[in-house]
């Protein structure tokens, strides 16, 4: 995971509250087998609307999403975070996040920064009156700067530390590799392994075929 100390990028005002994960990425995109390339799926239902904020040139290259309260509610799909990241977002600012979304963001290195709604409103005004204005999100000092607006934000200490160190959950666990290896040495020998594979005798499995059900009289 990339380290995150401070990020500066074009702010995108998303004046909507309760943006749920179905709106962030509709269910049809969940059938994909890849982890990347979800940028086209982000806000898919709204992207056809020429007035939608991401369809306006000034915001197109945005990387800081400034959203209304209750962002990321609904299904727990991690795809919502992947889609935001693939599009190029590094941070989402909102007055309130759904817990699971916040958790998933932390795992994937997307900063979910919680601001007071008044500050969100001030930032929206700046971004809307001067589209293309950049927003600086400083994780070190936990402040957001946009034009004249300087606002504090909240993020829990653990997530902040992980983002600043660039540690995802896996990286963090691998930091304890010695402990894991040590544990493995003490596992009893009777614990099973899948390899080398052991089987019952291999038997040919015949394919079932569609059947026209034979209607035969059966003795009852």
């Amino acid at each position: 995971m990339e380290k995150f100390t401070t990020h500066t990028g074009v702010g995108v005002p998303l004046r909507r509250s309760n943006v749920d994960t179905d709106q962030i990425i509709p269910a049809v995109y969940l059938k994909r087998v890849t982890r990347t390339g979800f940028e086209d799926a982000l806000f898919a239902a709204w992207r056809g609307d020429p007035d939608f904020v991401l369809n306006q040139d000034a915001y197109r290259s945005g990387s800081v999403l400034v959203a209304g309260p209750d962002f990321g509610t609904g299904s727990s799909r991690e795809h919502a975070v992947w889609a935001l990241k693939d599009y190029g977002f590094r941070a989402v600012l909102s007055a309130r996040f759904a817990d699971i979304f916040r958790g998933n963001s932390g795992k994937q290195g997307l900063l979910a920064a919680q601001l007071a709604q008044e500050d969100i409103e001030l930032i929206w005004k700046v971004l809307e009156s001067a589209p293309g204005t950049e927003v600086t999100v400083d994780l070190e000092s936990r402040t957001v700067t946009c034009g004249d607006v300087v606002a504090p934000f909240q993020v829990d200490d653990y997530t902040r530390w992980r983002l600043m160190e660039g540690l995802d959950d896996i990286g963090l666990t691998l930091g304890h590799e010695e402990d894991i290896a040590e544990f493995e040495r003490s596992r009893p020998s009777y614990k099973p392994t899948t390899l080398p594979a052991k089987h019952l005798p291999t038997v040919e499995v015949r394919a079932a075929r569609p059947i026209a059900l034979p209607i035969q009289p059966v003795s009852r």
């Binding site: 991690e78 998933n104 795992k107 994937q108 959950d169 896996i170 666990t173 691998l174 894991i180 493995e184």
Partner: peptide, 10 residues
């Protein structure tokens, strides 16, 4: 994500 975590770290 947890599947990935287990694959990578057991």
């Amino acid at each position: 994500s947890e599947v990935e975590h287990v694959l990578a770290t057991q």
